[in-house]
């Protein structure tokens, strides 16, 4: 189990993370960020496996990927 943290101030809503997330856990927010973009938002339902594809494609390096400890 993992999670990502999105820096909404740096995100420019390009959706590259949205289309590459294999589990469709990222969507664009309804809200606007200070720059006027709809930033990406993480849907935290415990399915993220920290694959990091969103991080690989983010042109703004606005995503941090965390991995849970093995139980």
């Amino acid at each position: 189990m993992g999670k990502i943290i999105i820096n909404i101030e740096q995100c420019k809503g390009c959706k590259l993370c949205v289309i590459f997330c294999p589990k469709q856990l990222i969507k664009l927010s309804e809200k606007l960020n200070p720059a006027g973009y709809h930033p990406a938002e993480f849907i935290d339902n415990g399915q993220c496996n920290s694959c990091g594809l969103c991080y690989q494609m983010c042109p703004d390096v606005a995503i941090e990927v965390w991995k849970g400890e093995k139980r």
């Binding site: 101030e9 740096q10 809503g13 959706k15 042109p59 703004d60």
Partner: peptide, 12 residues
Amino acid sequence: RNIYCSGCGHGI
């Protein structure tokens, strides 16, 4: 924060 347009490859 970079000044590139949304979806620009420079950031990557």
